[in-house]
């Protein structure tokens, strides 16, 4: 069944596997967008589009899309076989999970880092702290860029592996252990529904007004 997002053909300029089963796919930027927005991707013009956050900056020449293969999925196994010069079909960008210049905590799990990568690459970094959760040490996509810039304001929480400089445990454990969180800052959450609702509950329990919590979910 057609989900009625208008999809247009673009030629893929590059595809890189940045971790096992996790890819960054790039194509020349055909439109302006706001960092944090999503786009629909399909295998043909009338396909049922799947939504992905854009991971590149607003002024970058190319649009980057970060995704992981869902083995049972319709799109990502196909997408992972795409090579330079192949066509994919994309919608125009949309959505309002967009960054601002205000101080904020960016909290992501897995490929939920993508909108924060776009905000980072668009220069919306003042007063930001980035918390990224992942299962193993390969899960911290773009970590070299982030750690070089954010230093101690970039926290990686790893649930299965241990390493120096990496918090040993899930994001929820890390946040629960913090004695205090600034109540007047914004908290942007992006990831699985489980992560978003659990983190949101912890933030509310710690006194963050729900008005200051903005969530983006995968679906």
């Amino acid at each position: 069944m057609k989900r009625n997002l208008n999809l247009n053909k673009v030629k893929v300029s590059r595809q890189t596997e940045i971790a096992p089963g996790v890819f960054v796919l790039s194509f020349p930027r055909p439109w302006d967008f706001s960092a944090g927005q999503v786009l629909g991707i399909g295998t043909h013009a009338t396909d049922e589009a799947r939504l992905y956050s854009i991971a590149s900056g607003e002024l970058d020449d190319e649009v980057d899309v970060l995704y992981s293969i869902n083995p049972g999925g319709k799109l990502t196994p196909w997408l992972s076989k795409i090579v330079t010069g192949d066509n994919i079909w994309v919608s125009e960008p949309f959505g309002s999970f967009t960054g601002t210049d205000d101080p904020a905590w960016w909290i992501a799990s897995g490929t939920g880092i993508a909108p924060f990568s776009a905000m980072f690459r668009s220069g919306l970094t003042a007063g930001k702290k980035l918390i990224h959760g992942g299962r193993d040490l390969n899960s911290f996509y773009f970590n070299k860029d982030f750690s070089g810039f954010f230093k101690e304001k970039y926290v990686r929480c790893c649930s299965r592996d241990s390493a120096e400089g990496i918090y040993d445990g899930r994001i929820t454990k890390y946040l629960s252990e913090l004695p205090q969180l600034p109540a007047n800052e914004k908290y942007y959450l992006c990831g699985s529904a489980e992560m978003v609702v659990e983190v949101r509950d912890i933030l509310i329990e710690k006194g963050i007004p729900f008005d200051n919590i903005i969530s983006e979910i995968y679906f």
Partner: peptide, 14 residues
Amino acid sequence: KMGCLFCMTGKQGF
């Protein structure tokens, strides 16, 4: 998956 703030079903994830 929708994570609405007021819903018990959302709290169990997907």
